[in-house]
Every structure is written in C-alpha cells, then in structure tokens.
C-alpha cells in the first residue's frame, strides 16, 4: 500500500498531503506519524493541507487524533494551509477541530513550533 511521506526537519516532522486520501491511507498516516514522533523525538508536527479540496468528518477526526496523540507524546501539531471554503464547510458540518492548532501557512506554522523548541532548549540549559 502507498504511504504519505513524512519529512524530518530538525526536531519537527513535516507532512504535505498532496492527494485525496482514501480512509486506509489516512489511518496509515496517523500510525506512521505516531511511531515517527517517538523514533526521532519530535517536538512538533506540521501538517500542510493546502492541497486538500475538502476535509470531511473522517479526516477531521484523524487530524484531531494526531493532535491529541502527539500532545501526549510531548509534540505539538499545527495544521497549516486550510482553504477558506474548507473552513466554512467544516463549521457547517459541525466539526470545530477545537483540539487542533492551525496556522495560515507553513512559515507561520514553523514559527509556532520553533518558539516552542526555543522554550524547550532554554529549559534544558537550566
């Protein structure tokens, strides 16, 4: 089965979703990300969904799960690049994605994760 690639950028993981995922592919991504967070000791996960034309309840639940699991593993998930039409539709669908941090684009998402890393490094030096 095909998999969505996960890139490592320092202490962060970057996933760019470029295809319309079927449900098994989404579930596989959730599992792959979880093991990779542990394997590399990631402190942040950036998920770029700017190519996604829709997010339905299944994908929304997957994003929520990834955010919740990564939080338990001491990594922060930021979802970036959600299209305006997708955001409008999600609200009407009834999904608030309240557990998921979002940012406008990859740069701003990275900045969020970077500021958390700096805190982490400062704590380390104490």
């Amino acid at each position: 089965m095909d998999r969505i690639p996960i890139l490592k950028l320092g202490h962060a993981l970057l996933v760019t979703i470029q295809v319309d995922m079927h449900d098994r592919l989404a579930t596989a991504l959730e599992e792959d990300l979880t093991s990779k967070i542990v394997a590399v000791g990631a402190k942040g996960v950036l998920i770029d969904i700017s190519a996604l034309e829709i997010v339905d309840s299944f994908m929304g639940r997957m994003l929520d799960n990834i955010a919740a699991v990564s939080r338990i593993l001491d990594a922060e998930t930021v979802v970036v690049g959600m299209r305006p039409a997708v955001a409008i539709t999600l609200v009407e669908l009834g999904l608030s994605l309240s557990g998921v941090k979002t940012a406008l684009n990859v740069e701003r998402g990275m900045a969020l994760i970077q500021s958390r890393l700096e805190e982490f490094n400062a704590d380390d030096e104490d």
Binding site: E53, I54, A85, I88, T89, E92
Partner: peptide, 17 residues
C-alpha cells in the same frame, strides 16, 4: 461556486462512507 462545490463534495463524502 467554489464554496458550494466544497459543501456538496463534503456531504457526498459523508453519505458515500
């Protein structure tokens, strides 16, 4: 429109599942 397309595609995805 783009927003209406997004809405009906999302509804279709829910019902197909």
């Amino acid at each position: 429109s783009l927003v209406d397309q997004t809405k009906i595609i999302t509804a279709a995805s829910e019902l197909a599942r």
